[in-house]
């Protein structure tokens, strides 16, 4: 029996554009995030790749739980990678602990990155005005607004409020005069206290920065 000779097929690595999306775990601090992302970018540049654009989305709520996390830190890269390097990168990202999920996809050569404001998506829904009154009233009120910008329903309410305010103002003026004298005495006392408080706060902030700024801190 003749031995089978293994013939190694040489495949030329072609540089192609790809898009890389990462979800990092939300427990990372800012210094740790920059450290982790630099590791990945350095790895790409070592292999002969190039990063054309990058976009940091920040912390965002996930649509479902991933490894018991409700939030994730999103990062998107547009890169040009040698095609043989892909398997190495995928393996690295799979084993990495702080990367919750990753995806690499092909993109066409003339691709231009478009930014979408995904954070505002969730806020728009919650901003919808609460429903009041019956369905018939709602329709009528909407019609009035669309035709006349100054709807007649709102105006009379304002007048009533103005009259009430006037009566209140007269009473308040008398009270304010007596208050002003008392306040002047109090203000001088407060100024001395506030200066002391600010000094204390600034000292505390500096101490906290020193403790938290250390990169190699482990809790």
């Amino acid at each position: 029996m003749a031995k089978k000779i293994k013939t190694e097929r040489k495949v030329e690595s072609v540089i192609r554009p790809y898009e890389l999306m990462l979800i990092l775990s939300p427990e990372l601090r800012e210094t740790e995030i920059t450290k982790k992302l630099k590791e990945i970018t350095d790895m790409i540049e070592k292999a002969g790749g190039k990063i054309t654009s990058e976009d940091f989305w920040g912390k965002k709520t996930l649509a479902y739980k991933i490894q018991k996390h409700l939030e994730g830190i999103y990062m998107v890269y547009n890169t040009e990678l040698p095609s043989q390097f892909l398997t190495e990168l995928k393996n690295y990202l799979r084993i990495e602990k702080d990367v919750l999920r990753s995806m690499i996809i092909n993109i066409p050569g003339d691709y231009t990155y478009v930014k979408y404001d995904i954070k505002n998506m969730a806020e728009e829904k919650s901003k919808k005005p609460a429903r009041t009154g019956t369905s018939g009233e709602r329709r009528n009120s909407q019609k009035n607004i669309s035709i006349k910008h100054n709807s007649p329903i709102i105006q009379p309410k304002k007048k009533e409020e103005v009259i009430e305010k006037k009566t209140e103002d007269k009473k308040e003026i008398a009270e304010e005069k007596t208050k002003e004298i008392k306040d002047e005495v109090k203000k001088e006392e407060k100024k001395e206290e506030s200066k002391e408080n600010k000094e204390r706060e600034s000292e505390l902030d500096k101490k906290l920065d020193e403790i938290l700024g250390g990169e190699d801190l482990k809790l």
Binding site: M21, L62, A63, Y64, G72, M103, I118
Partner: peptide
């Protein structure tokens, strides 16, 4: 399907 994988859209109703 790509958006579902990256947790931008849920797979099923919560």
């Amino acid at each position: 399907k790509r958006a579902r994988e990256m947790a931008l859209i849920p797979f099923i109703n919560k």
